[in-house]
Amino acid sequence: MTRFVILLPVLLAAAAAQAAPGPAQQAELDAYTGMAKAADPNFGGFSAARGQALFLATSKTARPDTPSCTTCHTTDPTKVGRTRAGKEIGPMALSAKPDRYSVMADTEKWFARNCDSVLMRACTPMEKGDFITFMTGQ
């Protein structure tokens, strides 16, 4: 216990040195972890690499105007994106927009819309957690 108390600040400091989820982002990740475990008891954690692949992929089932997440968000998560109507979208990388992934209702709304537009289906809790894991490390 004592060793744990001493170690904890060291671990926190190490985590803060890189881009890392804050408490609000961690709460979303924890919620998606719960959902992913409920869907699959063998769920083995989120993967930034899978999140990146989802972000960059060109979907074969997309609606014609939205073939990829990058259609609106661009291929660089630290850059400003644009909607089809021309409106600016703030960067998706947490380092470039620190209030990202902090309000669960908003995050759920956009996953529901954008996964349906690009993939013609809902994203799974694992895909959502992978995506946030990738973006909070950017």
Partner: peptide
């Protein structure tokens, strides 16, 4: 407590039709 919180959040969010109010 964490498990309970996860369940509370998971219940409405799994149904696409029941998005939480924004």
């Amino acid at each position: 407590a964490l498990a309970a919180a996860a369940l509370l959040i998971a219940a409405p969010a799994t149904a696409q039709t029941a998005l939480p109010p924004t």
